[in-house]
């Protein structure tokens, strides 16, 4: 495992696979997330990007921030195109027209993954293409101004489930993409967060090196639509983990392994406060929403611990 210094040379040195001049909002968590994942590949990487903030901000014509082969596809088919790229690469190799090995990375936002690209993703996992699917999860359709997705947390206010007199925001709990991916019996699924660079790097490396499809889900605070001081991006990522809102774990060959267990989990309010999408939860009358949220988080965590302890294979 390389040191933070060695990783920094890859992410920000002269051979960096993604460079400055992109137009993410100031403080956006996508920047450190994507550069760390790209650096974890020891082979050249081909990136297939679904529509969403990452694609939009890195390729405003005629500019591109990518320093590695990159392709923009529609919102729904990143995993299908990655499948095609993998099949084409294998065919060209077989015919002796191309040499060497590459890693193939499909990237989508949570909207492009949990919802609209879900069928394509499931198909690609089932066909066992050798590629990694990365979802940068900012918990909503952020490029279009914060609409609800299957990853939006319970209680969050969005433009499509706005909190008000009759609604406390999204009434459903989020989808568990990691477990759904693991149910495809693929060799590697990881859940990481952007503030823990070493853990993120290690998981990306395992995903790239897996003997078959891999899925990596990474939480990415969105300064604009969670709306907090851009200096606090890493603090929100950290609080998501310290409250067990976003546990760091992996499912390797079907076995659950929790990467870090907070010794004293913080109350969920610590993560919620200061974010506009949760502001209404602190108003009188909404106390029950926070209580319910805390209960769900604790139940989910207890379940995850049991899954790990049991040693039962997914």
């Amino acid at each position: 495992m390389p040191t933070l210094q060695e990783i920094a040379l890859k992410t920000d040195g002269v051979d960096a696979r993604i460079v400055s001049g992109h137009r993410m909002c100031s403080g956006c968590g996508i920047g450190p997330l994507i550069k760390t994942v790209l650096a974890a590949s020891d082979k050249p990487v081909i990136v297939i990007s679904a529509t969403g903030c990452l694609e939009v901000v890195t390729t405003i014509y005629p500019f591109t921030a990518w320093n590695t082969p990159w392709m923009h596809v529609t919102f729904e088919n990143a995993a299908s195109v990655a499948s095609g790229v993998e099949a084409a690469y294998k065919a060209l190799k077989r015919r002796g027209k191309i040499d060497g090995d590459v890693n193939i990375l499909a990237v989508g936002g949570d909207g492009g993954t949990y919802d609209i690209g879900f069928q394509a993703l499931s198909g690609a996992l089932e066909r066992r293409h050798k590629f990694m699917y990365l979802v940068y999860d900012n918990e909503g359709y952020m490029n279009t101004g914060n609409q609800r997705s299957g990853a939006t947390p319970f209680g969050a206010s969005t433009t499509t489930v706005p909190a008000g007199k009759v609604s406390f925001g999204k009434p459903q709990w989020r989808k568990n993409l990691v477990e759904i991916a693991a149910a495809h019996r693929i060799p590697y699924v990881g859940q990481a967060a952007v503030h823990n660079t070493l853990d993120l790097y290690k998981k990306a490396q395992k995903g790239f090196n897996a003997d078959g499809p891999a899925v990596l889900a990474v939480l990415q605070p969105c300064t604009t639509n969670w709306s907090f001081d851009p200096a606090l991006t890493m603090q929100y990522s950290k609080l998501a983990v310290e409250t067990n809102f976003w546990p760091l774990y992996e499912i390797e060959n079907g076995f659950v392994h929790i990467s870090t267990k907070p010794s004293n989990r913080k109350p969920i309010e610590e993560f919620l406060k200061g974010q506009t999408r949760f502001r209404h939860l602190f108003k009188p009358g909404n106390e029950h929403v926070i209580v319910e949220m805390q209960k769900m988080i604790d139940d989910e965590w207890a379940r995850l611990l049991k899954l790990e302890e049991s040693g039962i294979q997914f």
Partner: peptide
């Protein structure tokens, strides 16, 4: 201390590194 935390966190790759 050249710990590289700022570099790895910078969203804009605005802190150059060298050997």
């Amino acid at each position: 201390t050249h710990c590289m935390i700022c570099v790895s966190y910078c969203p804009d790759m605005a802190i150059p590194v060298t050997k």
